[in-house]
Computed example of a mutant assay.
Amino acid sequence: MARRFRGEHTFKVDAKGRVSIPAFFRRVIEAGDPNWTDGLRPEIVIVYGDQTRDYLEVFTVNAINALDDKIAALPRSPLKRKLERMVSGQSHETEIDPDGRLVLPQKLREKIGLQKEAFFIASGDTFQIWKPETFAAHEAEYAEELGDDVPEGTDPLDALDMVLDARGAR
């Protein structure tokens, strides 16, 4: 099984758009790049998407290839075209520099309003980069929406067990 991203971190963004990548994230990126070896710069793909996305999603080479394969397997449709445009067209291939930093182009920083700090949050085989204030607002909104479906004090892991039990997949 492939290594997965875990955790959340906040890092400073310098005037050139350079931001450090959490050390553990770098290990996952390296493991997810089949061409990476010691001394080379590991590659990633940043999907920025259309105006509805207020964060950047970072994929390892293996993760973006798996996503590309899933999209390619879809029948021709408006959804397939939209996914192809987002994943292939509204994305940026880049690499991690020798100091463990990512250079975010001005266009991407402006898209999500990134200025002095970047908030990183793991999302399984990808991670997201947010403007910290935007993420906090998004999380507050999400918690309010979730509140109707999950009784107060419920541990989300318990809820996962309930879903698995209902499906008979336990």
Rank of each mutant, 00 (worst) to 15 (best):
F5Y: 08
R6N: 13
G7L: 07
E8D: 15
E8C: 10
H9T: 05
H9F: 15
F11H: 12
F11D: 08
K12Y: 09
K12Q: 13
D14T: 08
A15C: 02
A15Q: 15
G17R: 03
G17H: 03
V19I: 08
V19N: 02
I21E: 03
F24V: 09
P34N: 03
T37M: 12
R41D: 13
E43H: 10
E43C: 06
I44R: 00
Y48C: 02
G49N: 02
Y55S: 14
L56Q: 10
E57T: 12
E57Q: 10
V61H: 03
K70S: 11
A72R: 10
A73I: 00
P75W: 02
S77V: 09
P78R: 14
R81C: 04
M86S: 12
S88Q: 14
S88V: 09
S88C: 09
S91Y: 02
E95V: 06
P98D: 13
L102V: 06
P105N: 08
P105V: 07
P105T: 08
G113C: 04
K116D: 15
A118S: 06
F119M: 05
F120P: 01
A122W: 07
S123I: 03
D125I: 11
F127D: 00
F127G: 01
I129H: 01
K131S: 06
P132W: 09
E133I: 01
F135Y: 15
Y142L: 14
E144L: 09
G147L: 13
V150D: 06
P151R: 11
L157F: 15
M162R: 14
V163P: 05
A169R: 08
